[in-house]
Structure formats: C-alpha cells, structure tokens
C-alpha cells in the first residue's frame, strides 16, 4: 500500500518537476535531492545521514571497478553501490 502510494507520488513528481536519477548525472555535479527510493530500511538510513529532499548532493566520483559511487552530502562523503544510487533522484540541471 505504502509502495503504491509512493510510486503514484513518484510519477506525479516526475512529470511535474523533471527529476533525473543519480545514474545520469556526470561526476562533479552538484544537484538538489528530490527523492530517495529503495527499501524502507535503506531510505531511513540515508535520511538519517542527512539525505533529505531539498539537500544538495554532489556526485564526487564513480568507480567502475567497484561499481560504486561516492556522494557528498552536508560535507560528508558516503559511497553507495550503483544499483542503489540509481534510486536517488535529483533535480535536472537547468530545469
């Protein structure tokens, strides 16, 4: 039920605000976080680290060998696996 609500919500936001997945932004870009997706537990952990809608996120680097991305939020560097980072959506630049 919750998931359904979130998904509906997501589609709505996506159509209005033009979100883009972290997968699709180049390293070094700074963008405003719009939505944290994924399992509830993962989302809660990230949010407790300060990954909240409206917070600025910088994609520091992608490391292909490890399949990881490094993000900077609130001056802290956190790395996530790419599959999970794809569920984070940011505001499209210039939108």
């Amino acid at each position: 039920m919750l998931r359904g609500a979130i998904n509906r919500n997501k589609n709505e936001i996506q159509s209005h605000l033009d979100m883009v997945s972290l997968r699709d932004i180049p390293p070094g870009t700074c963008a405003r976080l719009l939505e944290v997706g994924g399992e509830a537990d993962f989302r809660r952990r990230l949010m407790e680290l300060g990954f909240l809608p409206g917070t600025l996120v910088r994609l520091v680097r992608r490391v292909n060998v490890g399949d990881l991305v490094e993000l900077e939020v609130r001056g802290c560097h956190v790395s996530l696996r790419r599959a999970e980072a794809e569920q984070l959506f940011v505001e499209r630049q210039g939108a």
Binding site: G38, E39, R45, L46, L68, H77, S79
Partner: peptide
C-alpha cells in the same frame, strides 16, 4: 543489505 559506507576525511 545495501551498502552505505562513509569515507571519512
């Protein structure tokens, strides 16, 4: 468990 790894300074 998704990895959330802090890279401290």
């Amino acid at each position: 468990v998704p990895l959330i790894l802090e890279l401290p300074p």
